[in-house]
Structures are given as structure tokens and as C-alpha cells.
Write a protein that binds this DNA or RNA. Sequence first.
DNA 1: CGAACAATAT
DNA 2: TATATTGTTC
Length: 494
Amino acid sequence: MFESGNDVAPNPASEKPQFPEGLRVLAVDDNVVCLKVIAALLIKCRFVATVTTKATEALEMLRKNKESYDIVITDVEMPDMNGFKLLEIVGLEMDMPVIMMSASDDTKTVMKGIKHGARDYLTKPVRLADVKTIWKHVIKKNVHDPLKLGNIEEKKDEHPEHSKAKKQRGTKGKEEETNAQCDAATYRNKKPRLIWSKELHYKFVDVFQQIGREQGIDKAVPKKILERMNDPRLTRENVASHLQKFRNTLKREGVKLAKMNEDNEKNNAVLSKAIVHLPNPTTVSTGIPSFGTQSQTFGAFRANNRRPLYYNPANQHNILLQQNVIPRPVADQKCSNMHIPAPIFSQNSCSETELDWMRFHSNIPRTNMVNNHSTDSTSHFPGFSTGPTTMPNVSYSCPPSGAFNLAGVPLHGSTQLNHIPQPESQVQSSTYGQYEGTNLVNFNGRGETNGHFLQHPFENPESESSGVYNNYNYPDDDLSYIIRQFSSNPPPRL
DNA sequence: CGAACAATAT
DNA sequence: TATATTGTTC
């Protein structure tokens, strides 16, 4: 019948339901389908259902003639009014049994509802079994008032329309039941909401980048992505929704990247001034560039053996700790944040400068990295010493003209980043690539351009190293004043 | 019309 | 918040 199993199963021996009839219920929900189902369920219980889709209207009705209702069931997420406010007014101010309805039944929400005067809660979709129990709240309320208790049974006759509905059981009533049953069934059989596991997200990112490379970033649209992902779990809507969020994330990160690099310029300027006073030969530590605490975010890069090495002026300690761990896609692990992809670059449009920049982004095939670094702490990786955690990080990583941002879109206009020419006197090509005319750093300090690069120690997932590669050679204190500059410049957060 | 996209709902 | 749904535009 209405519900499967013991939900309905009316006792054939007794015509009467096992609860009082004629309970006058005001049901409030802006979702008409939901409301329809609820109304049908209420009628099924031989209650008198009054429904409205507006919380304000419900309140008006209650204020006008509160005595017309025994109980109120209301959604707590009504658009025209704070649902909890309605609970409060009805449950606390009016001292009326009010039951909250919500799609979520987490303890926090329920407790909030109870605090706001709810006697009980119904989780959507509401089922007959749930509705059958609501009369108890009226009994509880009137437990010291037997007169009112007795009234419940009588009330049904005061509502001829209800009796009418009852009489039509065989015809229209049946129809309504069927519809309601149908709706309820649809509601319950709804596909469970998709969770974008890491595995799924990586797949998405791969396809996104693939299409981006082949056809351009704006050709990566839901339908194409869906087709290429070829995953039965997904619908176009799923992909569209995820893509929307993904693009937003890229956009946000893009802005941050630009802002961050602006900061870098300032920092570089500060440092280049400061360095004038430092003794020679001096090697200045640069940090491992990253987006602050978001380095986890770059898991997707690893899949491509490309790792962005953006400069991060602070939080180096955290970054280093995290970068020792190469995140890998884990099957069906929930994807808690929006991982962003490696820069997308076309094969044929990369200028030398772009390539330089990308090199800086450690665009190194993993196969080239293995055994490519020494565990000897004297082995320098210019520009990538970890240094002590309090060391200032000096960036040379401002992308040159024509650089791409994270979405593979060239950096233009206000996001365009310029080289910061270093003072001539600071150019020391014999020292591991610090001032080689530009603010770009070569991995091997020899102006490497042939495509083979040294590996950053942390780049190697197999590395056993705890990763203290300290190539600065003067005490922290010497730069403490610079540190202060950087500490007022926290890394961007998502 | 269907798809993409943005906005909004849950 | 993450995902779903809706509304508008293309």
C-alpha cells in the first residue's frame, strides 16, 4: 500500500487507526512536492491538514486563529523567514507543539531546533510512520488538561471537508494516495548525492586539462568532460556543478597568484636592498614556493610530474613538512577541497621565457629525477634551500611575460608580472644562480637550458631524506629584520 | 531545443 | 560546505 512493510499494514480487525483522529495540523514547507506528500500522509492518518508554503503566512494564520490548529509541522529552511525563528515563535512564544522538518538530521541541527522550541523533528522525506507519531506531542502538551485531550477525538466532525475526504476514500482519496506514494517513492529513490572522491576529481582534472591543452580552456565544457570521463556514476549536471566550482577556484587562485607575486616583487625589492649590506659570498635561502597551507592542493600536479613552485613568503615550516609527503590520489577518498591543476601550456606557443618559467615550476619528468640529488647537505639546490623555518624566503619566481596562470591562461594586464632586475653589483654568476640578470633561478646555477634539471630533494617521492637542505651560510639573526617584513605578509588562503 | 552558465537552494 | 537544482542566456 502506502508504505512498504509495517509502516501501513492497517489492522484488518479494527477500522480505526491506533492513534487519535482529527488532529488539526498546520504543515509549512516551501517545497510544494514535499508539502503535497505531507498533506497526503496527514490525511492518511485522518488528520486535518492545513498547508502553506510561506512561513510568514503560517505565522499570520496562527496569530489570527491559533485555536484552529493542534500542532504545527514546519520546515526549518524557509526562504521567507528564518525557520528557527518560526520555531521559536510557535514553540516558545505561542507554546504550541511544533515539529521541525529538515533535510539533515545531524545532531547539531536537531539540537538547535529543540533549543528553538521544537518538540520533535522529522527528517525529509517525511514518512507515514513519522506522521503517525506526532499526535503524541499534543498529548504531552495537554497531559494535565484532560479536557483538551478528549477534544481531539471530537474535532473531526467540526471539519466537514475532512469527513468528505474520508468518504471519498475509494475514489479520489485513492488517487491522492497513489500520487503521494509515487512522490514519496520518487523522493526516497532519488540518486544519492555524488561525492567527488579524489579519484573522481583527479579524473576530472585530467580530462579538463586534456581538453584544455587540445582545444583551449574554454572548450572544457560539461558535456565534453562527461564524455571523456566516461564514468557511469556521473551525469552532465554533476560535472557542470563541479566544473562551476572548479572554475571559481581557479579564478580565486589566479587572483591570489597575481596578488602573491605582487607581494613577491615587494619582498624582492626589500631583500635586494638588504643584501647590499651582506658580506660576500653570500647565499640567500629561498623558500620552496607554494601556496601557503594549500600545498596539499597540488596533488594533482604530481600526477603530471609537474609541480608549481610559487613563492610563499611565510609558513615555510608547514610547507616543508607537507612537501616531504607527496600526496597521491587515493581511491575513493573524499575530496575535501578543490584541487587545482598544473598550468596548461601548449606545445607550440611557449616562448623561451615561458619555458624558463616553467622550468622554475619544476616541470621535470619523474624519471629524470631519480638519483638526481645528493643527500649530502652541502649539495646545493640554488634557490631552494629549505633553511631554518624562520628564514625569510626570497623569491625569484615571478613569472616572466607570457607566463600562464594556473588555468593555463596567460597572465595579462594587472596580473602581468614583471622581472625585477637585480642590482648589477649583486650579479654573481659563480654563486649558485642568484642574480643572473633576472629574477629567475636556474636549478643548476649554470643557466641550464637543455631540459635537464636537478631535482629538488623534495621532488623525489622515494627520498628518505628528512629534507634539511640548508644552503644559507649565515645566522638567522642577520636577517631577522627581513623576517619581520615577511611575517607581516602572510600567505594567501583559500 | 539542448547545452552552458550563473545563481540559488538544500 | 559541497553538491543539486533552477533560471537565464546562448
